[in-house]
Design a protein around this nucleic acid. Sequence first.
DNA 1: AAGTGGATCAACCGCGTTAAG
DNA 2: GCTTAACGCGGTTGATCCACT
Length: 332
Amino acid sequence: MMMMIEGGKRRRMVAYSDDEIEEEIKKGPWKAEEDEVLINHVQKYGPRDWSSIRSKGLLRRTGKSCRLRWVNKLRPNLKNGMKFSAEEERTVIDLQARFGNKWARIATYLPGRTDNDVKNFWSSRQKRLARILQSSSVPSSSKPPKIIEEAQASVFHDVPFVEAPKFSSSTEDQESATKPCSSSHISNPEPIKMVPLPEILYTSLHNYEHCPFQPDYTPLEKKPLSEPQPHLSFPPMPLLQPDFSLPLESQDFVTRLGDPNFLDVFGNSNESALGAAQLPIGPSFFGPDRSCESGGRGEGHDEVTPDSFIDDFPPIDMFDHIESLPSPSEWS
DNA sequence: AAGTGGATCAACCGCGTTAAG
DNA sequence: GCTTAACGCGGTTGATCCACT
């Protein structure tokens, strides 16, 4: 595929910072022969000296391009062409909430996946979610069933929870995430906007008694539905209260789901805004203070490693509660 | 069957960081 | 300490695939 761009159409004279001499740089899809050359190079010299590939005249690709090709496609043990499993999806979602858009870092927790894979997965998911929310923001009497069907199929079922807000997309956020649990660390003092949810969603969010801060959890496993949770105190709840038994990012998402401003973000054609369901509201309250979720976090050792990650994975059970959603046929 | 739009994926670009000279 | 090439990463683009109408 994508062979039509081969040849002169995509060739041009380009000077790269890492390729001082101006000469023809080949771009576009890689051919099998090029892959072979690249693989041979790596077998001989290891995955380094990328720019020497061109300086030796082996390929007319930049070192950058060679490295990318190797990392994303030729490296051994890659899960090329395999869709993300539900477990991988949960992992990405959780880690994105922790690390922000540190795709390379997230990818280290997913054997066989590249940062590009993770990035594409996330981007795709964001777009899908945005589309669903867009359509749900213009409800009509004839639409709701489809919206819910779509949402359930695409988000609720496909992936057990909806959105991982970009709490930590900046170093600032990451720093705050490591701080001890305290309201003084709330970076955004703006009050959380809460508005009525559509009834369909509201009815599924009936359990407000539970606290999200679970002292123990089993990685990548669902916990029993009605497991009692310890209580923590929160500020007075506005009209819509989050379900504290849900993962934090999910609470936040649900909290904001009915907020017109929330939908505006997705309506914004600006991709960067889209990339961040990632709003100024909500996360300030629920976000950084996740560190008090368990004794393990927020005590100055928040650095998560692939090893510790397994021992430090939150429950993914938000949509266990969606079982109470009426079927589309019950809409009128 | 053709058109359309969303999903997916590969690759490029720009920028920041690192390391060597 | 400075410069610069090389590298790594995140954002973005664009082509193809595919399902739906």
